[in-house]
Design a protein around this nucleic acid. Structure first.
Lengths: 341, 341
DNA sequence: GTGAAAGCGCTAACAA
DNA sequence: TTGTTAGCGCTTTCAC
C-alpha cells in the first residue's frame, strides 16, 4: 500500500506536516489547503498509517480487551458495548481470549501490551488474576471487570453479586418456596460465591434450610447428573437458581430429562438475560446483568487516563435486575404430593 | 513504557540488531547471546513494539474482522473460531462492527485498513457490499464470508444455503407435513433467499403448496403479529422453518403466546445451533452452520496471501447439518381437528 | 555471526 | 499559518 503522507503532500502542493495537521486536527490549517489536501488524499486513496502515527506520537488509538471465552455471549456483549463506546472517538478494539487458562492469559496479555494500547480491559479467568503483575510493570491504564480480586486496588467494574443473589432468593421465597438448589458452573470464583452468599442470607433470615450448592461443570451430562438427584431424589427442591448462563441451561436440560415441568413442578431463576429466555416456553425469570452500563463504566475509567492524566483508581459496582417472567410460580402442593408419592 | 530494544541491547552487551534477530528469529544468533539477550529482556520486562516492528518490516501480524453485529452469537462465534486459528501463529485480531449500516461499514473498513493488517475478513451488512471498492484499491488480502455478492470474484467462504433449506424441508415432509411457513428476518439477503429456494424446490417436487414467506423483522412484537396469522388463522400451517436465529425465537415466542404446543400442534426447525436449543423443552431441531470450519477456511485463504504470495482467489461452500431433536414430529390429526373446529 | 547505520510513515519542535 | 527536520522503535542492508 504505497501511498504515504508525502505522496499526498506532493500532489496537494503542501508539506507533509500540513497533511498531518489536516488529518489529525492538531493545528489549524487554512480552509483552502484543507480542501486541497482532502481531495488529493481522496484521489490517491490515502489513509493515515496508524502504526506509524502511534509510533511517532506515542499515543495509541486502540484499546485491548482480554476475556476468558469469545463464545460466551456475556463476554462478547461486553465487547460489543465497549466497541460502541470507543468507536465514536476513533478508537479501535483488539480482542483476545485467554481460553480460561491463566498461563494463556499471561501470554495474551503480553502480546496485547506489545501494541502499546491506550488501555486494556480484562476479565481474568480466575480470582487470582496472577497476570496482573505484568500490567503493574507497565504504564498502560487497565480496568478489571466482572472478576476482581478482593484486595485489588486499581480500576474495576463489577456487579453487586450479593444483591443479585438476594433478589433471586427473595422472589422465590415470596412465592412460597422452601427448599432451594443453587447451580453454579464453579464455586472457585469470588463473584459466584457472592451470589451464593446473597441467597444464603435471605434463606437464613427466613429461617429456611440453607440451599444445596451444586457445581454443574461445563457439559450437559455432568450437569444433568448432579442436578438430577435433587429433582428426582428424596430431598426434592422446588426452587432452582442458576448463577451462570450455563447453569441455567443445565437446570432446564435436567428438568426436561427428568420430566419435570417448569414452573409447575419446579421454579427456575436463570442468570443473564438473553433473547431466547424471552422466547421459550415458559419465558424465563432471570437475573439480568447490565452489560451495556458495564461497557460504559469501563470506558469512562479508561478515558480518564487517556491523555496521561492520572486519575485516582475507582471501583464501580453495578446492580443486577430481576426480570420476572413465567418460569417461577408458587410451589404446587399437587406437585409435592406427586413427587413424594 | 520506556524500555526499547536499545535498552536490552545495552544491558546484554550486544547490538540492537542482534536483539531484533533473537526475537524475530530472522537470522541465526549464537546460543550464548540468545541467552544473554533473553535474560536482559526478561529483567527489563521488554516486549517488542508491534507498531514499530510493523512499520519497519512492512508486515503486520494482525488481522481485522468486520461484522454486522457483535451481539449476534453467530458472528462472534466466527470471530472466536478465527481467533483460535490465528493466535497460534502470533497474530492478533482487531474487530469492528458495521452495526448493519453500509455507510458505517465503509467507515469502519477504512479505519481497519489504516492498521495495514495482514488480512481482513468481512461479513458485509448487505449483498451489495458497496464498500468492496475500498478494498479493491488496496493490496490487503481479504475474504468475504457468509454474505457474498453473487458476481463476486475474490476469496469467499459461504454456506450451501440451498442445501440447508432442502434438509429442513425434506425432514418435515418426511414427517408428513404439508403446509409450511418460512420465517426470515429479511428476504433482502441472498443467503436467506437461497435457503427459501431450497425449501421451495422440495415442496414443489412433492407437489405441495409453496411455503408462506414471512419477514419477521427484528422485534418480538412484529414477529409475533406476523406469524400469529398462520398459527391461529384459517390457513394454519403445521411446519415452521426459521431461517435465522431471531426467526427461531420469533416462532417460539409466537407459539407460546398463541398457546400452541411444540411439537404437538406445530413442528419447528430452528436456525443456528446454540446451547439453549439443546436445553429447552422441547429440545430444538435445528440447522447447524459449521462455524468452526468457516473460521478455518477463512484463515486458510488469508494465510495463502500472507508472504506476498498471490494465490488465486478461491471460494468455499460449506454444508450445514440438520440436528434432529424434539421440536419436530409428525403432524397430529388431533391438532388439525381442534384448530379447524 | 555481529555491529553500524539507514530509513519505514508519521508527528512535533522549531523556524520562517 | 506553513515548511523543514529530527526521530519514535524497529528491521534490514551492508560491512566486517
Amino acid at each position: 500500500m504505497p501511498v504515504s503522507i508525502k505522496d499526498v503532500a506532493k500532489r496537494a502542493g503542501v508539506s507533509p506536516g500540513t497533511v498531518s495537521n489536516v488529518f489529525s486536527g492538531n493545528r489549524a490549517v487554512k480552509a483552502e489547503l484543507i480542501e486541497r489536501v482532502r481531495s488529493a488524499a481522496a484521489e490517491l486513496g490515502y489513509e493515515t498509517d496508524r502504526a506509524a502515527s502511534q509510533l511517532r506520537a506515542g499515543k495509541a488509538r486502540v484499546v485491548a480487551a482480554l476475556v476468558p471465552d469469545l463464545n460466551n455471549p456475556f463476554f462478547t456483549s461486553l465487547i460489543a458495548s465497549i466497541e460502541a463506546q470507543v468507536r465514536d472517538e476513533g478508537f479501535d478494539i483488539i480482542v483476545a481470549s485467554s481460553h480460561g487458562d491463566a498461563d494463556e492469559e499471561a501470554r495474551r496479555l503480553s502480546a496485547l501490551l506489545a501494541w502499546r494500547p491506550a488501555g486494556i480491559v480484562i476479565i481474568p479467568c480466575s480470582d487470582e488474576f496472577a497476570s496482573r503483575n505484568i500490567l503493574a510493570d507497565t504504564q498502560v491504564p487497565f480496568v478489571v471487570a466482572d472478576r476482581v480480586p478482593s484486595l485489588f486496588q486499581g480500576d474495576a467494574v463489577t456487579m453487586d453479586n450479593i444483591d443479585a443473589g438476594t433478589k433471586a432468593a427473595e422472589h422465590l421465597v415470596a412465592l412460597g418456596h422452601r427448599r432451594f438448589v443453587v447451580a453454579a458452573s464453579t464455586l472457585k470464583l469470588q463473584n459466584i460465591r457472592e451470589r451464593c452468599a446473597g441467597i444464603e442470607a435471605v434463606l437464613a433470615k427466613e429461617g429456611l434450610a440453607p440451599p444445596t450448592l451444586i457445581e454443574v461443570g461445563l457439559d450437559f451430562d455432568t450437569a444433568t447428573e448432579r442436578l438430577g438427584v435433587f429433582m428426582e431424589g428424596e430431598q426434592q427442591a422446588s426452587a432452582f437458581i442458576a448463577l451462570t448462563n450455563f447453569a441455567t441451561l443445565g437446570i432446564l436440560a435436567c428438568a426436561h430429562q427428568t420430566g419435570l415441568s417448569v414452573p409447575r413442578d419446579i421454579s427456575v431463576v436463570g442468570f443473564d438475560d438473553y433473547s431466547w429466555m424471552h422466547a421459550v416456553s415458559p419465558p424465563m425469570t432471570a437475573i439480568r446483568q447490565p452489560v451495556k452500563q458495564m461497557g460504559q463504566a469501563i470506558w469512562t475509567r479508561l478515558r480518564g487516563h487517556l491523555d496521561g492524566r492520572s486519575e485516582p483508581a475507582s471501583r464501580e459496582k453495578l446492580t443486577c435486575e430481576l426480570v420476572v417472567r413465567a418460569s417461577t410460580a408458587a410451589p404446587s402442593s399437587l406437585g409435592d404430593t406427586l413427587r413424594i408419592a
